[in-house]
């Protein structure tokens, strides 16, 4: 019963939190550029507006792919808050991403294709580190279940500092922020135009945005998991992570996919694998 309640709470509250975070992101970004910036609730206005636009999807299949993307993102988040297997959560999220890529491939548009291809590269870049995070948590707590990991009496961060920093490194890509925003631009004025999102419009784009809100909340939940035994420390870490990401986003330009891939893998190898090796010996 409690699990059901948690899941319902997540499904209702996560998009609100995610939307507020997106608003805060834009506001903070505007401050960093000494602008006033949009109202805090702007992301909600945007999504509400997108739902009222005419539907001009090129293929019907695109709509289903986007729907699957949203459903699987919600599913992975729900599994996470329900305390299920961490690996399952990660794979569900990967599957969700695959649906987004299929959606981008379903339209014959060069920009959409470029975005989809770059999204695949991006997945290749961050996936090893995410898996290593799960393995690291398993090695410390002897369980893959999120509930057990969260109930572990010690702060995971103490034993997994390398993995934590490595995860922060790839999180920039996962949150679609510069310098690792390989596959999409928020405004289509750059070399890849809109990337994967080029061909999405109206209600579909709104659903993608909502899915990202869910995903961002879930990802920050993953950060929080490192500090699960001290709740307020976790909240502090999440807030710090968020502002660090916004800061980096506003102070860097997009890097090439080669550099992104290489640096993410090096981070995974040195910080992630290094941490695992140390864990074996202590």
């Amino acid at each position: 019963m409690k699990t059901v309640l948690t899941i319902v709470l997540f499904i209702v509250a996560a998009p609100l939190a995610g939307g507020l975070m997106a608003g805060l992101d834009r506001k903070a970004g505007a401050w960093m550029q000494s602008r006033v910036g949009p109202p805090l609730l702007q992301p909600f206005y945007d999504v509400a507006k997108l739902f009222s636009k005419q539907n001009i999807a090129v293929h019907k299949s695109q709509k289903y792919y986007v729907l699957c993307f949203l459903v699987f993102v919600i599913l992975s988040g729900a599994l996470f808050v329900a305390g299920q297997d961490l690996l399952l959560v990660i794979f569900a999220l990967t599957l969700a991403d695959v649906f987004l890529i299929l959606g981008a491939y379903s339209v014959r548009s060069p920009y959409s294709y470029v975005g989809a291809e770059r999204e695949l590269v991006q997945m290749m870049a961050y996936e090893p580190m995410v898996i290593i995070t799960a393995i690291g948590m398993y090695m410390v707590t002897k369980s893959f279940s999120v509930a057990d990991i969260a109930a572990f009496e010690q702060n995971l961060f103490v034993k997994l500092p390398g993995i934590f920093i490595g995860l922060l490194f790839v999180l920039t890509g996962k949150l679609r922020k510069s310098p690792f925003d390989l596959s999409m631009s928020h405004h289509a004025h750059q070399e890849i135009v809109g990337g994967v999102l080029t061909e999405f419009s109206g209600a579909e784009l709104a659903m993608v945005k909502i899915a990202y809100w869910y995903q961002n909340v879930f990802l920050l939940g993953l950060v929080c998991l490192f500090f699960a035994s001290a709740f307020w420390l976790g909240v502090g870490a999440v807030m710090l992570t968020f502002f660090l990401e916004v800061f980096i986003d506003n102070n860097s330009a997009r890097l090439t996919w080669q550099f992104t891939l290489a640096s993410s893998w090096i981070a995974a190898a040195v910080l992630g694998m290094g941490n695992l090796v140390v864990l074996i010996f202590i």
């Binding site: 949009p38 109202p39 945007d46």
Partner: peptide, 14 residues
């Protein structure tokens, strides 16, 4: 202009 929620989105479909 972002004060008014205006974005120069650059993509006709959006």
């Amino acid at each position: 202009v972002e004060r008014f929620g205006i974005l120069n989105i650059g993509n006709p479909k959006q």
